[in-house]
């Protein structure tokens, strides 16, 4: 593998994997909460939350990236606060790439998890509560196991989306090798220099392999949802 990919190329692949994994794992709890809220709770601002969550799916990624820069940049409202209070910097760091990837993958994760939650019969949860289970236990022992395949499918989709993220990343955190130059950015960069086609092509193959694998995995998990909720 190391012989096949040059150190620069390998660096881009490794960075992309790290950025996507962190993005997905860090946003999973929020995705679960938002999906549950959208599927089960009725509250003022529910429609607004729904729009907000799905916005990155329809906005041009450059716009999302620029909004992130305005908000989380060193001069941005949130960015300034995080920098001064917690010493956390997103701008032009790999963490910023992860944030951009998380925002872009979030709607896909929420959608998959929400569909799984909506497929769970609330009457099963009622039955569990009459058997003595507190709401938290009902969620842990009934809802969660039943939606687990949906969570996994959402995670895979979110990971694939994060892995391919380009526009928001390059706008928000630029294109710094080893820091923010993820795989798509590296492909773009190789294509800009003479003789870079071979490197670009190798990275394209890696991207195709990872994306295909993710899609297959997600399809398989989606079928597992149906099986589990149908009761095997």
């Amino acid at each position: 593998m190391n012989d096949w990919l040059s150190p620069d190329e390998w660096q881009a692949v490794a960075l992309s994997l790290r950025v996507s994994a962190v993005a997905v794992l860090a946003s999973l709890p929020f995705a679960l909460l938002v999906a549950h809220a959208l599927a089960r709770w009725r509250f003022p601002g529910r429609g607004l939350l729904n729009v907000l969550v799905h916005l990155p799916l329809v906005l041009p990624p450059v716009v999302t990236g620029y909004l992130l820069l305005l908000t989380f940049g060193r001069r941005g409202l949130v960015g300034q606060f995080l920098d001064q209070q917690l010493g956390m910097v997103f701008a032009f760091r790999w963490t910023g790439a992860a944030l951009a990837a998380a925002i872009m993958g979030f709607p896909l994760m929420v959608r998959a998890i929400r569909l799984a939650i909506e497929a769970v019969d609330p009457r099963l949860e009622q039955a569990a509560s009459t058997l003595g289970a507190h709401r938290i236990w009902v969620f842990a022992t009934i809802t969660l196991p039943l939606i687990l395949p949906g969570i996994l499918a959402g995670t895979v989709l979110g990971f694939a989306k994060a892995f391919g993220e380009f526009g928001a990343t390059i706008t928000f955190v630029s294109n710094i090798p080893g820091q923010t130059q993820t795989l798509p950015l590296a492909i773009y960069t190789f294509l800009q220099v003479p003789g870079g086609e071979a490197s670009a092509l190798r990275l394209v193959l890696v991207a195709v392999a990872i994306a295909t694998g993710a899609l297959l995995l997600s399809e398989w998990l989606a079928r597992a949802v149906a099986r589990r909720i149908g009761g095997r």
Binding site: L124, A127, G132, R135, R228
Partner: peptide, 29 residues
């Protein structure tokens, strides 16, 4: 709340937990 009432409820549709075996369903309470 229902979980503190100690009411055994048998519903019209059995409402068994599909991801658990019969034994696990029985032991749930």
């Amino acid at each position: 709340p229902p979980h503190r009432r100690g009411m055994g409820y048998v519903f019209q549709e059995a409402r068994l937990f599909p991801h658990l075996t019969v034994r696990q369903n029985l032991l749930y309470g």
